[in-house]
Nucleic acid binder design. Structure first.
Lengths: 205, 205
DNA sequence: GTCTATACGTCGATAGAC
DNA sequence: GTCTATCGACGTATAGAC
């Protein structure tokens, strides 16, 4: 009779895989990809180095999995922030996304840097493009709605959305790398966003 | 008597190195990093694959050299664009940088994509950070001047500069990847830039 | 330019599930 | 008894220090 994987074994394997991912996320948040060595991940997960390869064929694949997990979490957070409330302007919602993301980033600077800018394997780099498109879509939907309602001046919603994604990411990289971020970063970014959307300064002073 | 490298030999080596870089730049512009295999570079330079390693110890190092060469060229182009003329506003100069970069990018889409977003070796990724800082500094100088003169509303010049770098880069990635770029891209980016700087729409309608 | 340190990925041996 | 999951040390490549 051939060997069959019993539910108990499968459950243990699943738990082990989860432990690996959790360990990786912890290391990512503390030391970025630089601290995510296979040996360190294994040690934190309580298994041997070689055993990690039972779940992920290479470090690159593990890194991609970690990246995707973090991205899912962040996209959910900003989507929620954008959806909250029922009578808010489109500009308000876009700003809420920026503020939410920036706030979370500044609270977990090492993780945010890993997500946004840390030099990484090309496989993870490719995922960054996906990540940005997801964020762009969250923006574009709101901006298009604002333009339709006449709340925002005419503009190419997708282009503005892309630009805001890039602006937010790049503006955070500086504060994330150069020591402690100043307290004015998030408000400054919000002002930038409102101006870029075409909301006159008088309307948000 | 030990082997001495004669001037003639040295000259030939230098010429060969130049040929390698030129070949790499050509391939980069046509097919991005994906087309820059060591074999292809060697073939175009008219030498054997192994000979490339006489000049660059690894593909990563060659890639970094190519990246730096392109970046030098682009930074020079936008710096010139920003410096041109003697009585232009700071906002004008910032927009000129954006328009120059975007215009050049859309004329060499494959090269621009390689420069901005193509997944690459981490060593090149690290260079991207340097590249963006250089662009940021070009912006920040002009923005700070504009704020000092009262031409632009109060703002953190470095933050706005970073944001504009990210915005320009990200806004171009879409058009660069999705087939032929629409003709409205550059003007739309210019409008975004002016608004983000805090120039009222009335002043540039 | 050499040398050391670090990290990825593999492998044979062992323990344990079927 | 057979097959599999796990261990952890090893080979190899590479990067950084001196």
């Amino acid at each position: 009779m051939p060997y069959r994987r019993t539910p108990a074994v499968q459950a243990r394997l699943d738990a082990q895989r989860t432990a690996v991912v959790e360990a990786g996320l912890g290391l990512l948040a503390e030391h970025g990809y630089a601290g995510c060595t296979m040996a360190a991940v294994a040690a934190r997960a309580g298994i041997a180095t070689g055993s990690v390869y039972r779940h992920f064929p290479s470090k690159a694949e593990l890194s991609v999995e970690l990246f995707r997990t973090v991205v899912r979490r962040e996209v959910a957070a900003v989507s929620d922030a954008a959806a909250l409330g029922s009578h808010r302007t489109a500009a308000d919602r876009v700003v809420a996304v920026i503020e939410t993301f920036a706030g979370r980033a500044l609270k977990s600077p090492r993780l945010a840097y890993a997500l946004l800018a840390e030099p990484v394997d090309p496989a993870v780099d490719a995922e960054r493009l996906v990540f940005r498109r997801a964020f762009r879509d969250v923006f574009a939907e709101r901006i298009a709605a604002g333009v339709r309602d006449g709340e925002l001046p005419p503009q190419d919603a997708v282009l503005t959305a892309s630009a805001l994604v890039g602006a937010g990411a790049e503006a955070l990289i500086g504060p994330l790398t150069n020591g402690p971020p100043g307290p004015g970063t998030v408000p400054a970014l919000a002002t930038f966003t409102l101006r870029a959307l075409g909301v006159p300064d008088a309307d948000h002073a």
